[in-house]
């Protein structure tokens, strides 16, 4: 019984470890910054700079005036205009294992998006959510603008 409890505990612990390592993985870097631009990690804002690493779940936020460009590991390029908020909620990039997924949410603002390897290999694995509706990406370059809902 005790052994079983220990096993369960060990299982839960290893699960926690796995999850945190996936969250810690760097998925890309900030490359350009102009004006007011921050990266929020667990709600805490740090000024974005070229070279700031990005992890899944980080919030990219620009002020007015402000803009920021990022490049992800699969060569996805995204740049945010002023007063924009974007999160990469899901990111899996392991082409040799076939694990490919990119899910981002844009709350408001303007975005320039050039898709990368994930969209090329698995277009159905890429989506951009906005408050007004979702956008599916089939390997391409496009722009999105979203009005603030407040």
């Amino acid at each position: 019984m005790l052994a079983m409890r220990l096993l369960v505990l060990a299982g839960a612990f290893s699960l926690v470890v796995n999850v945190s390592s996936a969250e810690d993985a760097v998925i890309g870097y900030v490359k350009t910054v102009d004006g007011d631009a921050v990266v929020l990690v667990a709600g805490k804002a740090t000024q974005a700079e070229p070279g700031t690493p990005l992890q899944r779940g980080n919030v990219l936020k620009t002020g007015k005036p402000g803009s920021m460009g990022v490049t992800l590991k699969d060569n996805t390029v995204m740049s945010l205009g002023p007063d924009t908020e974007l999160v990469v909620d899901e990111y899996l990039y392991s082409p040799s294992d076939g694990d490919l997924k990119l899910g981002a949410s844009m709350r408001r603002g303007s975005l320039n998006y050039i898709s990368g390897v994930i969209a090329k290999l698995k277009p159905e694995g890429v989506s951009l959510k906005t408050p007004a509706g979702n956008i599916g990406i089939r390997g391409t370059h496009f722009l999105v603008t979203v009005e603030a809902k407040d």
């Binding site: 007004a132 990406i137 089939r138 370059h141 496009f142 603008t145």
Partner: peptide, 21 residues
């Protein structure tokens, strides 16, 4: 209403596709 998507041509002259809900 500023909720819209615009498709742009790629650098190589091709154009991809975007599905908008």
């Amino acid at each position: 209403a500023k909720n819209y998507v615009v498709l742009l041509p790629n650098d190589d002259g091709t154009t991809g596709k975007v599905a908008v809900a």
